[in-house]
Design a binder for these strands. Sequence first.
DNA 1: GTGAATGAAAT
DNA 2: ATTTCATTCAC
Length: 766
Amino acid sequence: MINGLSVGGGQQVAQVTPTGAAIKLHFAYNNSNNNSSSNKNNYNNLKTAEPKMSNNKHYAGRALKIVEKIPGASGVIAATNANQGAGSLVGFSPATASYVSGLSRDFLISRELSQRSGDFLTAAAKMVSQMGAGELRWMPMPRTKDKPSNAEAKTLEREAHGSPENAAKSALADPQPQRTEDQENAFRRIEDVHNYAKLQDCSSDTDDEDDEEEDLDEEEEDDEEEEEAEIQVQLPVQQEVTRIRREAAEEHVDVDVVTVPQPEQDQDSHQVEPRQLQQDQAADTTRPEHHARRPMNAFLIFCKRHRGIVKERYKTLENRAITKILGDWWAALDEQEKHCFTDLAQQNKDAFFNANPNFKWYKLPAPPLRTLATRPSNAAAALLIPNEDQPQQQVPTSLQMQWAERGEMPRAMLRPNYFKLADETQMGELSSLLQVQVQEKDFALQQVLSETSQFLSAHMPGGNSDGNGNKRSLQDSNSSNSSEEEAASGSSPNKKVKSSRSCKGKIYQELVNSGQLAAIAKKSKARSPPAGGMGGNFVDIPLDAGPNTPPVSPPERQGTSPDSMQKHMRSVSESSSSGFFDLEEKIKELPALSLDAYLQRKRSTKKKKKFSGTKKQRNSNSTSGASAASNATAVDATAKGAVPATNEHLVRIKQQQQQLQAVGSQRRKARKESITRRDVSAIEQEVASILPLTINGSYYFNQSGTPKAVNASVTSSSASPPLSSNSSSSSSSLSSQAAFDVTSSTSDLLILAEVAANRTELTKSN
DNA sequence: GTGAATGAAAT
DNA sequence: ATTTCATTCAC
């Protein structure tokens, strides 16, 4: 049997929008684990089912999909008909193609149904014959999903039309169909579809469709019960099927193609054609429509810009703790300081909405949560990892993010594609159509690419320079898809270009050459003088400064640093793709605020507060009690064991801390229980238990005590003067403050983090 | 209440 | 493999 494609494999869908002009191809790769093992079974017998249609009119816009499954290949192919007779595309995944002996390896066909029905049919017939009717499936294109929970789009099948299909259906349904009949039926179906397409004139299904589709979402809602059973059976399969976006309908011209690479696929496929660009765009296929992500607000931008900085300094802090610090830091900023962030946020927002006029803050079913894997950073990482020399940890690049948005995109990038159009000869109008549509956008892209290619050829003697800028560009384009904006709006669907890491350098260079990066390059150079001495709060921190990655000197970046390259690339690509608003880049460009300045400020604030007497106490009750314990200063203890460097650091922090005190934001909510074991609170507790800290001028007490077994080392540490040398030590107020917020103040956090870190190290050493 | 970024940790 | 968390902000 054809066991199928791994469900997890990939999904590919070709969709033609009703309007003649609009052709939408969607290939989605289904990353999500395919859960149900049952899927396999389902695949084993592909059946053709008749799609149900509640309304013809709805149906009108809808294309039928033929889904095919190939052993070993996860690909699903869907063919849709354009009702209007515009064109329908049928895509065969390479794997499929190969599978079908009769077809050429890369056989992808797209054509207008009406005009080239013959070819289409022929191809279909071949497929059928090869695969057996059982393997063909008709599917409606609706993008409905039944539940948000199911990330995968589920396609409901609907009746294309007509009764005749039932027979066919039943036949097809038969698990062990006989070839001839099945084939016959399949063939017939195709024909019907074809005819239907011709007849139908759906002018536009857009809005209506949506509604309709929603209805469809509920499987059970369909009137026809009869088919229910079968549908359900197929359901799993359907799930796998990529959801096609309807958006295309809205945008007639828009061509959206998403390709999902299949593992096996060969590479040669990368073609330089515009389509790939398109593919990028569609990336998220699986996702619900609005996949554009909300624009980041000022704070998030700030976080993005500074998280790495904070993290670098407090390596041991948990991300959440860092977030807290960032929050606090943010709160400490004054309007002016915030201005650049707020301003950028606003710009971004404007650009975003510009690009995605239809974006709704709250959209339909919320898109499935992004999983770690799908997260921008991760996704990118995954992609990049293979080659990456340097892990890019820091700020997820915009590319990553974008990829993440699209989810599957990355893979697509990696594996060049899968969805190719058939030979141009065969493609006929399709390609021209695509090109036309894409043309404009591509143009800009092409320019950039060409530059890049030139650059490459000039500078990269290595095999890279294929001389064909296009290719490269195409690849790049695949990956690229940038900004959210694009995704949703489709405003610049085609353009997004992102390069896979291999091209980073090139891209970067391109950008530089093109002048887009010039500004950046300059900046970086400017920054190069490490001396940090900018007086104000702003610090020159290399953008990249990530916890692990040492700041990259400008030269490096330009030259070869993969990371930097990547980032730049990204930004470049983004910018080009997204209408030139490159948030990522802009964020990088933003001056980093000085953490020290912030700390300083904190101190002073604290002092003031101190004087004032009570501070805010927002503490929630946290129980974390630190045991009263000893007086030894934690710091010292830790210091001993700890790495020297850390020590100093610690000390410094202590001091700061002492002074800092006041800052904690009042607004913070009580901390929720943390799930993490080693979460900040835990750290705090430990620390507390171990050392009676004076934080923020007050001592922490534990109420309940249980000092945790502290490391011997720590304990052992002699009591040395309290952290603070100064005022803090004092005391103060044991009492009231004693209750420190569960969420320790940021400053406390910092200290605690240090301590914890040291402690950890000590432990290790022990 | 949601999700935008982030990434470790929990599930 | 997914969800939680911690933050702020805009809806």
